[in-house]
Structures are given as C-alpha cells and as structure tokens.
C-alpha cells in the first residue's frame, strides 16, 4: 500500500512528528511504500536545519533527512505556513530581505496544492496532529 503523511506538530513541543516518524519506519518495515511527508502548520519547524537538541536526544530534522536518503521519501513544507513561522530557504530569504535561511534540500518549500497531489497519489494519507 502507498502512504503519505501529514505532520502538523512541531518537534519537541508535540508528539505528532515523533509518532509520524515511528509510523513511517513501521510501514516501511512491513514492505509498504511511503511517497512523501507534508509538513503543515507547526509541523514546518521539523525542517529547520538550525535545531540543535542536546546530543543525547533525537535530531528530528536529521531523522527526516535519513528517511529521505534511505527511502526516497519526498519532504514537502507548506510555504505559507513556513514563512509566517520564520522557516525559509535561501531564495525566499532573498525575496523577503531576511538575514539568513534555515531550510535546504531535501526539504522543499511548496504550496498546499502539493498536499492534494500527495493525497491523489497515495492509498492512505495519515494525519499526525496532536
């Protein structure tokens, strides 16, 4: 079965991304396919490359990047939700005259249309909200 995940919670504040990551590994271990993860609302904070948790804690961004490298999972971030929360890539930082950026590939800033596209391509879209 093909899956997509919608992540709405920020790392270390909400359980949502941690549950989503565990669910992703569980479904892949069972031979299912994960097409993509869409980060929306506070979930956009998962993409920040400036997060620096203590060394004995999981680095959530690195965990998503590993998922992408090992299983070619697309990591899409809603651009409108990200910009409002200070999560920007280099070109958006330029456009808005911001001093720095904090998101890079494999995360991609994209529109909400991509969420509908992901939904259309997968058998199940699972939302992790809380």
């Amino acid at each position: 079965m093909t899956y997509g995940l919608l992540v709405l919670g920020a790392p270390y504040s909400a359980q949502a991304p941690h549950s989503a990551l565990r669910f992703a590994h569980a479904l892949l271990a069972r031979g299912h396919t994960l097409l993509g993860v869409f980060f929306y609302q506070d979930g956009v904070h998962n993409a920040s490359q400036l997060m620096a948790p203590p060394q004995d804690e999981l680095n959530m961004r690195d965990a998503w990047v590993a998922l992408h490298r090992e299983h070619a999972v697309a990591l899409d971030v809603c651009i409108a939700a990200a910009l409002r929360r200070g999560v920007v890539d280099e070109s958006e930082a330029h456009r808005h005259g911001l001093a720095s950026h904090n998101i890079e590939a494999p995360f991609e800033l994209t529109g909400l249309g991509q969420l509908f596209e992901l939904r259309a391509r997968c058998d199940r879209l699972m939302t992790f909200a809380g």
């Binding site: 609302q41 409108a80 529109g111 909400l112 249309g113 969420l115 509908f116």
Partner: peptide, 20 residues
C-alpha cells in the same frame, strides 16, 4: 486556538481553487 482554524480554511480554499 493557535492558527489551526485559519490554516484549515486555507486548505479548503486551495482545494476549491484546484476544482475539488
């Protein structure tokens, strides 16, 4: 209650714009 309602409505509007 956060920005949840507003961003949910955004999804509705984008869906409609995509002809759903």
């Amino acid at each position: 209650d956060g920005n949840r309602l507003r961003e949910a409505l955004d999804v509705a509007l984008v869906g409609a714009a995509f002809g759903k």
